[in-house]
Design a protein around this nucleic acid. Sequence first.
DNA 1: TCGTTTTTTATGGTATACCATACTGAGCTA
DNA 2: TAGCTCAGTATGGTATACCATAAAAAACGA
Lengths: 241, 241
Amino acid sequence: MISETTNPPWTDEELSPIRDKVYFYIKDAILRGEFKAGDRLIERSLAQTLNISRTPVREALFRLESQRFVSTVPRKGVVVNEISRDEILEVFLILSSLESLAVRLAAQKIDAQTIAEFDREIETLERIQQNPEELGEQELHLEVNLRYNDLIGRASKNFRLHEMLVDLKDYVRAFSNMSKHTPGRALEALNEHLDILVAVRNGQADLAESYARVHIEKAKRAYVQSSVSEPEPGLENASGD
Amino acid sequence: MISETTNPPWTDEELSPIRDKVYFYIKDAILRGEFKAGDRLIERSLAQTLNISRTPVREALFRLESQRFVSTVPRKGVVVNEISRDEILEVFLILSSLESLAVRLAAQKIDAQTIAEFDREIETLERIQQNPEELGEQELHLEVNLRYNDLIGRASKNFRLHEMLVDLKDYVRAFSNMSKHTPGRALEALNEHLDILVAVRNGQADLAESYARVHIEKAKRAYVQSSVSEPEPGLENASGD
DNA sequence: TCGTTTTTTATGGTATACCATACTGAGCTA
DNA sequence: TAGCTCAGTATGGTATACCATAAAAAACGA
């Protein structure tokens, strides 16, 4: 009954703990580039902005820290991580290895029910493929990746692996605004995703794994290409917009 | 000057935040089996035990949660995770993939300085190999794994990968008291580690990767064997001992 | 004016207080 | 006696207060 708070960004008043909402709020802000590498995240400011206390903010920040989105300098504060190009490349290596494993497992373990889901989703993605203009580049990327990861994760029956992949991809996405720089990459990625999904759906483990490796490799190249025009993530040295 | 606290388990009074000390304290307790799967971790109790407030305890628990050691049930509390055999097997799959990648990278990227370190450490490990009785089974495992992981991590020049591997191995160790159940495994593992290290030291990437896969496979088998005698981790149904 | 010292302020670290909820158990009623 | 209700308690969630430190600013002296 009592409620004197001016509504924060999130909508539902009843469910999950505030710390989770703050977590998603901040993470989303980082992913969308609103908080840039090197930015300081000041507990009191965030708390005041969101009309809450520091406690849930701190808890959200800790969670972000263990996912490497931010760093806590003891007695100093929290800053959005500065990620070097080398570090992103390291992650791409890990991604390649784990994605290969995931699609291989998916192809090996896929069952009838999941095949049905694949068929539905593949059809949906093919429709998107035909009419890619309906979605913006960003939404296209997000939507496709979401569906793809979900499917592979479900089929591979390895929840931990799925989580790790999602985390790593979020991480890469946050610190390399790829699709912003290489237009057309989203659509290309969609094609690659479809290749992988079809191979998985047909139980072709080796083929799926090959496609996956190629896919990650191309994503990496797109990142490398985009990163040459912008010397260091977070620095605004680059000429032109 | 003021100091009315009865000393907590840790020794240094000055350095890192309390939350870190609590984190290592609880994690260590889980790794050593003091806190078993299913145990509830009650903030106030822990805080009282350690003569601190709930705040740093909560922060430590959140960190443990993001590493999957504990789960927070909303409005319910924190419990040490119950890990199923299947889940451990899932992690072994991931481990195999990442460990292969790590040793392959290590073999490819190793430099002169690191080779020198390898030579020193290999010699040390061979001495241990000759006189394994000097260390207990547990210490042997810990010591060897520590040195091994550190070397591979340094040589592979992929810090993120190194961290992930350490985390995953800790996780497996925490929820499968392997070495407790299969005596001799520690020494066997030492031999396998030495094989890998020598191959890496000599730049033999393929060989090192093969050894690594075999090593993880054997570790997995040791786990599976030990887990048949103890039906579910955390349940004390098993007869004997 | 410049450098050094002191004071202020910003901010994270920790402790504590209060609130909400879910569980527990006692007591009441049928 | 069985089942329900309600009060009490345990416990996590959040807010707030206080402390320590480091950075910034101001004041002071050479």
